[in-house]
Nucleic acid binder design. Sequence first.
DNA 1: TATTGTTATACTCTATAACTATA
DNA 2: TATAGTTATAGAGTATAACAATA
Lengths: 147, 147
Amino acid sequence: MISVAKESDALDRIASDLRVAAFLFTRRMRLESHLEEVTDSQLTVLLHLSRVGPRTPGQLAEFERVSAPSMNRTVNVLATAGWVRRVDDPADGRRVLVEITEAGDELARTARRRRNAWLKAQLRHLDPDDRAALVRAVEVIGEMARR
Amino acid sequence: MISVAKESDALDRIASDLRVAAFLFTRRMRLESHLEEVTDSQLTVLLHLSRVGPRTPGQLAEFERVSAPSMNRTVNVLATAGWVRRVDDPADGRRVLVEITEAGDELARTARRRRNAWLKAQLRHLDPDDRAALVRAVEVIGEMARR
DNA sequence: TATTGTTATACTCTATAACTATA
DNA sequence: TATAGTTATAGAGTATAACAATA
């Protein structure tokens, strides 16, 4: 029974540390983003659209794991700013496709570079073992988040 | 020059993947927290106070990497709910200490258990190599966030 | 004058509930 | 009746600027 308790304690420790690290890391990245035109969440949607092409609001919400109204607001902001446009789906009158504009695509590229600059500088100084662990952990964390 | 470009591209890829993973993971954990009495940010402050004892609002803000007014709002919510109290520093009239109450300490313990449940279940199914990579990566990410 | 805490203000992110239009 | 999108509403988190009190 002792080993079961130890195992549970160890997992507890990892869980707490991981949660705190992810939380602080997310905040720190937002701080180091130096974005002016869009917020972090907005840029994330923009980058997704840039990579995968037009998507419905519902698909975007599911992918980003947020509610439909929440995503709708983000799309509104992006559309008002001219980074995306809504296009009616000719095959189904209920559906709408959100499409990145040329200006949006341009912005996504430059903003992504700016946003990654700080993090890349951090990664450059890691030793190879740590970097390898990080790469594997990123996959694991991503899978857990999406499972 | 090619290898320099490759290195930069590789770092770019890791940076993007890490950012997305941390972002989604944080959202997913908030979703799986099942907290009613406090939000995620509030509980984080509560747990910190529970671990390290009374701290000034300024110290809390610095530790959590948020602005002083932002932390002040969080402390206000916690104080109104009775989870913490403010105590004047007798040695320096400008300073205030934020102290967790007994009820707050009790809440912190039970809420922490509830919040970790989902994540622990995920961790339990990882194979040992992945878990080791995760542990090391958590240290690395935490250091980057706080550097 | 410098430091610590707080208030004022404004904006983003988020969710649930309700509503509209189409299938 | 079910689905997709949207609007209405409300609350939390965040920052900058301004203010108050004390050292």
